[in-house]
Amino acid sequence: MNQFKKVAWVLLLGFMHLAAFAQDATNNEAANDLMRSNGKIFLVMTIVVVLITGLLFYLISIDRKISKLEKK
């Protein structure tokens, strides 16, 4: 259960910044920000970063689980 909570937190935090970008779009129609430059390549970058951090967190949690079992 604890593990599930952790993953949920990672996902929540990972998506939280999207709300900030969505607000940005309504305020700024010209949209010359970094996220929309170069064919929105930085959008892809954000997604890759969210994926890799999520997977790394998962890996770290498995590592901790095994470390706990080893101490027993």
């Binding site: 930085f42 892809v44 890759v48 970063v49």
Partner: peptide, 8 residues
């Protein structure tokens, strides 16, 4: 993280 940010 460096690869996935600076790589783009």
């Amino acid at each position: 993280l460096y690869t996935c940010t600076y790589g783009f």
